[in-house]
Design a protein around this nucleic acid. Structure first.
Length: 548
RNA sequence: UGGGAUAUAGCCAAGUGGUAAGGCAACGGAUUUUGAUUCCGUGACCCGCAGGUUCGAAUCCUGCUAUCCCAGCCA
């Protein structure tokens, strides 16, 4: 499955040691999303880590939905999550839901009650908070803490049977109200929620909390290495307590790593949600979103995302990876696979005055000069073409080697042309250029008579196909002044321009990817492209050392 | 002021007592029918700071400092 070599990391080393000690027959990991949102690039880091770690040691990985909170979860998300993981190219060994284990979890809770390690508490939410103490002061024990096993058993059964309303009672672990670790101060194990669950419907009106459910899920599935993010470090003692006190056979090991942060990118569900709810973006799959579906629509390939995730490494330091690193990996992936073609995003008409009228010649062009196997294409050339507005300047600065009055440049795959006249409208805007060409300079003839500094891309006017180009920038900018994330929002994250592409682009399909000469890599937008109009998303521009 | 973590170049990140890998970015230069690609070259007199142990420390010890996480019936 994997040809790549992933750099080592501390988790891999732990697994290596465990394998060396024959601690497990097989390593088992899991990717445990809560179905309450779309997957993003940060999740991809976890997916790649979990799936490839297990794969590397011949183990397996489950996809397990952590659906213990029906108030927030929805079927829509489980479908999108499955789809995204499949698109990335991973196959889970087994598809599970935390809700599959509700019966066993209930039994475990009863088991704890019988051991005198759990009790039903009548304190209100507010009271529980007050009794918990603070970071520096210990908590106080609930007056209900010492109920008898029989009473707890009865009360818990009645909680399950729906005798109480939401918030009236909870089941708590009996651990230590004065623990310096707040998670150990009698954490809530079960709460009452009369809500319909996407999977179990109305079967249950009590639902387990993450800290109780998660270790049990891992143990039930025989997960050996339960990988999660740093903020769960304080929960590890509780995780171990649950596994041990519930007398679970398997003893999964929780290992925490630092989540991914990226420059100019928001990763929290809350903030991502804001963009969607405000209709600032075109849904969760808007090409500017760092979601898997957004990156996909933007044009990122599964390999580029996975390679990025492998190369950024896995450690415990809070990190912010430069988004340019992600961009680097798509460029690298598309370099050899994306066909080259020419597109003029902001057209300027050029008339080649000494070229015969009504003549059209078809020129040979490599589809990808870095990958000859891709073959050739034919492109038309005639008296009228379009070039890029930014490829002409009437009064150029030094080191500008594109077109300007009197200057000669090369038209890619065609001829040298020299700018003779500049046509302007009443307002003084340049609307057309008159140039002459030199027939001797035709590409492919081996002409070496003289050299030219610039090579321009172009599209023949009469055969040109209309296209829309969507140019993206990040939704937020880190260097923007302000405390609030709203201050970071980039008002210019989307620019739409209309121009032309080569005639053979008429047959493109959604998600086809191209390199537009001198512009960058583009993806055919699957949502907005119609029979009448192709919409291209700019995935990433080409690097450029040119500065005006 | 409690507990848990982390500190290696602008950003990631190897390094696990023997004298600082690699990638991204940046900057030079060569090649170039993409100001792209490719190719070559440039970075830590030093590993948060201060002491100590040792023939020898980023790696061990001590003490500081900074940053992140924890007081949901969220995950």
């Amino acid at each position: 499955m994997s040809e790549h070599t992933t750099p080592t990391n501390f988790i891999k080393q732990i697994v290596e040691e465990d394998m060396a000690e024959n601690k497990y027959d097989e390593i088992v990991t899991r990717f445990p999303p809560e179905p309450n949102g779309y997957l993003h690039i940060g999740h991809a880091k976890s997916i790649v880590l979990n799936f490839e770690l297990a794969d590397e040691f011949g183990g397996r990985t489950n996809l397990r939905f952590d659906d213990t909170n029906p108030l927030k979860e929805d079927e829509e998300y489980v479908n999108s999550i499955k789809k995204d993981i499949e698109w990335l190219g991973y196959e889970w060994d087994s598809l599970r839901f935390a809700s599959n284990y509700f019966d066993q979890m209930y039994d475990c809770a009863v088991h704890l009650i019988k051991k005198g390690l759990a009790y039903v508490d009548d304190l209100s939410q507010e009271e529980i908070r007050q009794y918990r103490g603070t970071l520096t002061e210990p908590g106080k024990e609930s007056p209900y803490r010492d109920r008898s096993v029989e009473e707890n058993l009865d009360l818990f059964a009645r909680m399950k049977d729906g005798e109480f309303s939401d918030g009236e009672k909870v089941l708590r672990a009996k651990i230590d109200m004065s623990s310096p670790n707040i998670n150990m101060r009698d954490p809530v194990l079960y709460r009452i929620a009369h809500a319909t669950h996407h999977n179990t419907g109305d079967t249950w009106c009590i639902y387990p909390m993450y800290s109780f459910a998660h270790p049990l899920e891992d143990a039930i599935e025989g997960v050996t290495h339960s990988i999660c993010t740093l903020e769960f470090q304080d929960q590890r003692p509780l995780y171990n307590w649950v596994v041990e006190q519930c007398d679970m056979e398997a003893q999964p090991k929780q290992i925490e790593f630092a989540r991914l942060n990226m420059t100019d990118t928001v990763m929290s569900k809350r903030k991502l949600n804001w963009f969607v709810n405000e209709n600032y973006v075109d849904g969760w799959d808007d090409p500017r979103m760092p979601t898997i579906s957004g990156l996909r629509r933007r044009g990122y390939t599964p390999d580029s995302i996975k390679q990025f995730c492998r190369e950024i490494g896995v450690a415990k330091v809070d990190n912010t990876v430069d988004v340019r690193m992600l961009e680097h990996f798509v460029r690298e992936d598309l370099k050899l696979t994306a066909p080259r073609t020419m597109a003029v995003l902001r057209p300027l008409k050029v008339v080649i005055t000494n070229y015969p009228e009504d003549e059209v010649e078809w020129l040979d062009a490599d589809i990808n000069p870095e990958n000859e196997e891709m073959g050739k294409r034919q492109i038309p050339f005639s008296r009228e073409i379009y070039i890029e507005q930014s490829d002409f300047m009437e009064n150029p600065p030094k080191k500008y080697f594109r077109l300007y009055p009197g200057n000669e440049v090369r038209l890619k795959h065609a001829y040298f042309i020299t700018c003779q006249d500049v046509i302007k409208d009443e307002d003084g805007n340049v609307v057309e250029l008159h140039c002459t060409y030199d027939p001797e300079t035709k590409s492919g003839t081996g002409f070496t008579g003289r050299k030219v500094k610039g090579t321009l891309h172009w599209v023949e006017a009469s055969h040109a196909k209309d296209a829309e180009f969507r140019l993206y920038d990040s939704l937020t900018k880190d260097d923007q002044e302000g405390e609030d994330f709203m201050d970071k929002v980039n008002p210019e994250s989307l620019e739409i321009v209309n121009g032309y592409v080569e005639p053979n682009m008429a047959s493109v399909k959604p998600e086809d990817k191209f390199q537009f000469f001198r512009h960058g890599y583009f993806n055919v937008d699957p949502k907005h492209t119609t029979d009448e109009q192709i919409v291209f998303n700019r995935i990433v521009s080409l690097k450029s050392s040119f500065k005006l």
